[in-house]
Nucleic acid binder design. Structure first.
Lengths: 183, 183
DNA sequence: AGCGAGGGAGAACGAGCGTTCTCCCTTGGC
DNA sequence: GCCAAGGGAGAACGCTCGTTCTCCCTCGCT
């Protein structure tokens, strides 16, 4: 098995396990079992578990933001694009393996002990925030709206994760719609 | 040392350690060292670590909601009371040992492995949500507003925790003010 | 065919930690 | 003063798990 293939398989398994059960309750041996990549190979690719965690968050960040942007691109009107963010959140929340925001969960688990993970969470949230800012700017709306939409989206993610329901996306969308008009 | 005193000291130490460093990175021996309550006594009071965690979250829940309600009570106008929630969040975020929402953090850390902790997080969030609903109802505002304010507050807590800044409370307050007028 | 590099399976090592146990001291009741 | 009960200090136990090591097999090259 090629090095690149082994890396992808390891990350696939790590993502499913870390996201589904939390980082700390998943052992490297679990990743080996789920990926078919031997421990020796795993440690060649990722010299320590923390680096596997970082790679997991990094790859997921790229995919998550990519999927969001792709969904938003399908809408033309600037204000529609903003509301599409919340529609996409609703679709995400409804996926069967949805277990909340991977970065918020990772922050709760490792934020106090791993400075690198904490930094990655901050980077992901900052990128999402800046993306919202860019949508707000493109719509010619006041800059303060970006932060407000961000808070609604974060609140919806947390709530959907804890309550295991998707309804918070629609609530957030409605609040966003009102703020678009009020601003 | 009296049983009740030992229990309070143990919970004081557990709260400071669990909240500050996360549950999993704090050992029972750390709690013993910080509280001065011997391991034997700790295990008499809390037969397992999970029960200490539950007691920590339970006591903190009562105090947190008590402090919030007390702050809100100081305001007379129904709409002022709603906005006071966000002012109080801002004060909380600014406290030197603030490290995000204890329940969101605990959920990220233990939600996938401890059903009892997960249930306690849901109960705490439900109680907060119902408190907001009651403020909205008392102000004669549409019921849908309660959920929107809840999402803003949750988003502010998460954001303040991750970015280690208190600004999100003011952003959420402003969004709430607009929603009060728009609704 | 022979050989050496790379890799797989899984044992082994070592640390951390939840939990229990041992030993000893204190103290309150007779 | 004596004894049983309770408690403190900390060692001990057992398990998990991150990380490394051993042993053996395979395979490409000469």
């Amino acid at each position: 098995m090629d090095r690149a293939v082994a890396r992808e398989r390891a990350l696939d398994a790590a993502e499913e396990l870390f996201y589904g059960r939390g980082v700390q309750s998943v052992g490297m041996d679990d990743v080996r079992g789920a990926s078919g990549v031997s421990l020796k190979r795993l440690y060649q690719l990722f010299p320590a578990k923390e680096q596997l965690v970082e790679a997991y968050l990094e790859r997921r960040d790229a995919r998550w933001r990519g999927r969001l942007a792709e969904y938003v691109e399908r809408h033309g009107e600037p204000e529609e694009r903003i509301l599409a963010v919340f529609d996409w959140l609703g679709e995400w929340f409804g996926e069967p393996d949805f277990r909340g925001c991977a970065w918020i969960n990772a922050y709760g688990e490792l934020g106090a002990t791993s400075a690198r993970v904490a930094a990655q969470v901050r980077a992901h949230k900052r990128a999402f925030r800046e993306y919202l800012d860019s949508l707000v700017g493109a719509a010619g709306l006041p800059a303060a709206l970006g932060g407000q939409l961000f808070l609604l989206a974060e609140g919806a993610m947390v709530t959907a994760g804890v309550t295991r329901s998707a309804g918070s996306a629609a609530e957030a969308r409605e609040a966003a719609r009102l703020l678009l008009r009020a601003g």
